[in-house]
């Protein structure tokens, strides 16, 4: 059977990018959400820049995590509801392969912009200047981990009525390591310590989850289609 993997992969990414491009407001919502959450912290705690500098790394991480999860929740919802998922399952291109394509498109539209926005948010919270590169690198790896686990959660809950509420309950405990490592790396860099250890661990976690999670996601989608 002459099924072209490359064609299916590129086709999926093109489809998702096109669709998101035509619904720009919805695509940008996670980024606005990120900015709003960042703004809430000084309001709830203190506008004092010294105090904010101490928690800046953690705050940016929590906000990025929530924004990424908010958008990942509906990663497969549209395809499930309009029946595209059935077509994907029957296409002869392995589901995990198509899952990677979908994740990649999603990451380009949400993960990457968050990485780019993060330094601006960190600046507003007075993060130490030395930590910016580390923050971006950690978020680059971290958003990939979030996207892997988020995809599993999204696939498991896509056919469930109350999926929206269930999703964070399933996914949050799984992404604790990424949060810890990423936030600590940023904090270390801000304190002038070496963030290398935490970053390497995060990179290992990233490789592990990016390479294994698509299989779990594909299996979950199968269950949801059943």
């Amino acid at each position: 059977m002459s099924v072209s993997y490359r064609q299916a992969f590129v086709g999926q990414i093109r489809k998702d990018l096109r669709q998101s491009g035509r619904r720009l407001a919805q695509t940008l919502t996670p980024l606005f959400f990120f900015s709003v959450v960042i703004a809430l912290f000084p309001l709830a705690m203190t506008p004092d820049s010294e105090a904010l500098a101490k928690i800046a790394g953690g705050v940016v991480w929590v906000a990025a995590l929530l924004a990424a999860l908010l958008s990942l929740q509906t990663l497969f919802r549209g395809d499930f509801e309009d029946g595209s998922l059935e077509l994907m399952a029957l296409s002869g291109v392995p589901m995990w392969f198509q899952v990677i394509a979908k994740q990649m498109a999603h990451w380009l539209l949400t993960g990457l912009p968050l990485v780019i926005l993060a330094p601006i948010a960190a600046y507003s919270l007075n993060l130490n200047g030395d930590a910016y590169i580390t923050l971006m690198m950690a978020l680059l790896l971290g958003t990939l981990v979030l996207s892997s686990f988020g995809a599993i959660g999204a696939a498991l809950t896509v056919s469930v009525g109350q999926g929206g509420l269930l999703f964070p309950v399933l996914v949050l405990p799984l992404i604790v390591p990424a949060l810890i490592l990423g936030a600590k790396a940023t904090e270390f860099a801000a304190q002038g310590r070496d963030p290398g250890g935490a970053l390497s661990l995060l990179a290992a976690l990233c490789i592990l989850s990016v390479s294994l999670a698509p299989f779990a996601t594909a299996a979950s989608l199968r269950v949801s289609l059943d």
Binding site: L156, S159, Q162, V169, L170, A213, A216, A219, V223, S224
Partner: peptide, 29 residues
């Protein structure tokens, strides 16, 4: 999460399989 996911499916077998995947992902984690 395991218990909630299992109960979220009206069909027992689908709930079983979904929760099973979550349990395996969890045990690796």
């Amino acid at each position: 999460g395991f218990a909630l996911l299992r109960n979220a499916f009206s069909d027992v077998q689908r709930g079983d399989r979904a929760a099973a995947i979550l349990a395996i992902v969890g045990v690796v984690n």
